Simulated scan of single mutants.
Amino acid sequence: MTKIGIDPGHGGSDPGAVAASGLQEKDVTLAVGLDLRSRLQGAGLEVVMSRTGEADVSLSDRAQLFNREQVDLVVSLHVNSADTTTANYVSTFILAPGGQAEKIAHAIQPELVAATGWPDGGIREANFFILRQTDAPAVLVEMGFISNPATASLLATAATRQSLGRAIYKGLAAYLGLPPDVPVVPADIQGNWAEAAIRRVIAAGIMAGYPDGSFRPDQPATRAELAAALDRILARLK
Results as ranks from 00 to 15, higher is better:
Lys3Asn: 10
Gly11Cys: 13
Gly11His: 06
Gly12Ser: 08
Gly12Trp: 04
Gly12His: 09
Gly16Ala: 06
Val18Cys: 04
Gln24Tyr: 05
Lys26Ser: 09
Thr29Cys: 12
Thr29Ala: 06
Ala31Gln: 07
Val32Thr: 05
Val32Met: 05
Arg37Ile: 02
Ser38Val: 01
Ser38Gln: 03
Gln41Met: 10
Glu46Gly: 10
Ser50His: 11
Thr52Glu: 15
Gly53Leu: 09
Asp61Asn: 14
Asp61Leu: 06
Asn67Met: 09
Asn67Glu: 07
Leu73Tyr: 03
Leu77Ala: 01
Leu77Gln: 05
Val79Trp: 11
Val79Tyr: 06
Asn80Tyr: 11
Asp83Gln: 13
Thr84Asp: 14
Thr86Tyr: 12
Ala87Phe: 02
Ala87Trp: 03
Ala87Val: 03
Tyr89Ser: 14
Ser91Lys: 11
Ile94Ala: 08
Leu95Gln: 13
Gly99Asn: 12
Gln100Cys: 00
Gln100Thr: 13
Ala101Ile: 02
Ala101Asp: 13
Glu102Lys: 00
Lys103Arg: 12
Lys103Gly: 01
Ile104Gly: 00
His106Tyr: 04
His106Asn: 14
His106Ser: 09
Leu112Trp: 04
Ala114His: 10
Ala114Lys: 15
Ala115His: 04
Ala115Lys: 09
Gly117His: 04
Trp118Val: 04
Asp120Ala: 07
Arg124Asp: 00
Glu125Asp: 07
Asn127Gln: 13
Asn127Pro: 01
Phe128Pro: 04
Met143Glu: 00
Ser153Tyr: 04
Leu154Gly: 03
Gln162Pro: 01
Leu164Met: 09
Gly165Phe: 05
Arg166His: 11
Ala167Asp: 03
Tyr169Gly: 00
Tyr169Val: 05
Tyr169Ser: 00
Lys170Asn: 06
Ala174Lys: 11
Leu178Trp: 01
Pro180Arg: 08
Asp181Thr: 13
Val182Phe: 04
Pro183Thr: 06
Pro183Tyr: 07
Pro186Leu: 13
Asp188Glu: 10
Trp193Ala: 15
Ala197Phe: 14
Gly205Met: 08
Met207Gly: 09
Ala208Cys: 08
Ala208Arg: 15
Gly209Ile: 02
Gly213Ser: 05
Gly213Lys: 01
Ser214Tyr: 07
Arg216Trp: 02
Pro217Leu: 05
Pro220Tyr: 06
Pro220Trp: 11
Glu225Ser: 08
Glu225Pro: 01
Leu226Gln: 12
Asp231Val: 05
Asp231Ser: 15
Leu234Val: 12
Arg236Thr: 13
Leu237Cys: 12
Lys238Cys: 05
